[in-house]
């Protein structure tokens, strides 16, 4: 699978409502951020967790989110950022206006 996103792209983290082992924490779902970096492609932990090692691999990205947008009561600088890795299938393109960076 070719990576759909590149550094600088604005993305929205989906809530896929999947049961079982997932690596997209609750606090980041539904949030809009900016792709910082393509990490390469990796076996999906959701597959690995049930013993499926046959792939396919999934592109992984580091995505940045302004802290003040994650937490309304955030205390710190407006420039503070949370950086986290999100697999491709948990992301959708976000309208440029959805993220104020």
């Amino acid at each position: 699978m070719t990576p759909r996103f590149d550094a600088g792209d604005r993305v929205l983290v989906l809530d896929l409502g999947k049961p079982g082992h997932i690596r997209t924490p609750f606090y980041i779902r539904g949030r809009a951020g900016v792709v910082l970096h393509r990490c390469g492609a990796f076996l999906n932990p959701e597959d690995l967790s049930i013993g499926n090692v046959g792939g396919p691999v999934v592109p992984l990205y580091r995505v940045g989110f302004p802290m003040v947008e994650l937490w309304p009561d955030y205390r710190g600088s407006a420039a503070d950022m949370l950086c986290i890795e999100i697999y491709d299938h948990w992301l959708a393109p976000a309208a440029p206006s959805a993220v104020a960076m």
Partner: peptide, 15 residues
């Protein structure tokens, strides 16, 4: 061995 991935182990304690 490939008997248990880290993600399988995690599924174990997450469930």
């Amino acid at each position: 061995r490939r008997m248990m991935s880290l993600d399988e182990l995690r599924r174990g304690f997450e469930s």
